[in-house]
Amino acid sequence: MRTRKSEALAVPMSSMIDIVFLLLIYFIVTMEDEIPEAHLSINLPSPGSKKENDSQPKLLELQVYKNELRLRGKLMSYEEIDSFFKRFGGMDKDTTVMVQVSQHARAQDLVTALDLCRKHGFNNLNVLSIND
């Protein structure tokens, strides 16, 4: 009788381990590497007309073509634009950057340009398209 009582109180380890391992396998199989997503905000051209009393905003023009960037129309490498922004580190961060994008530029080219602007603290990014 005594033996039987001690048997009944024992926790069924083997079945519990079975289930725990099944759960472990489930989590390992369904586990996904979460992609760290960054959101690059842009302003779209407003359909409204320009107000008369609007002060002239500070503008910086960046053109984006397929695999190339131009600053105020001048072809420059990524590093050159990067160092230009760095040299003018004291530039007003409220400066509006007009990002003019070629129809043939790829999404990666646009993201590279937006990312470069964000790197130097420019958050006011207006995106326009170039009809080429």
Partner: peptide, 14 residues
């Protein structure tokens, strides 16, 4: 833009 949304973000791997 046609519907009138102005807050737009392009998603990238950051």
């Amino acid at each position: 833009a046609r519907v009138g949304f102005t807050k737009v973000s392009i998603v990238a791997i950051g």
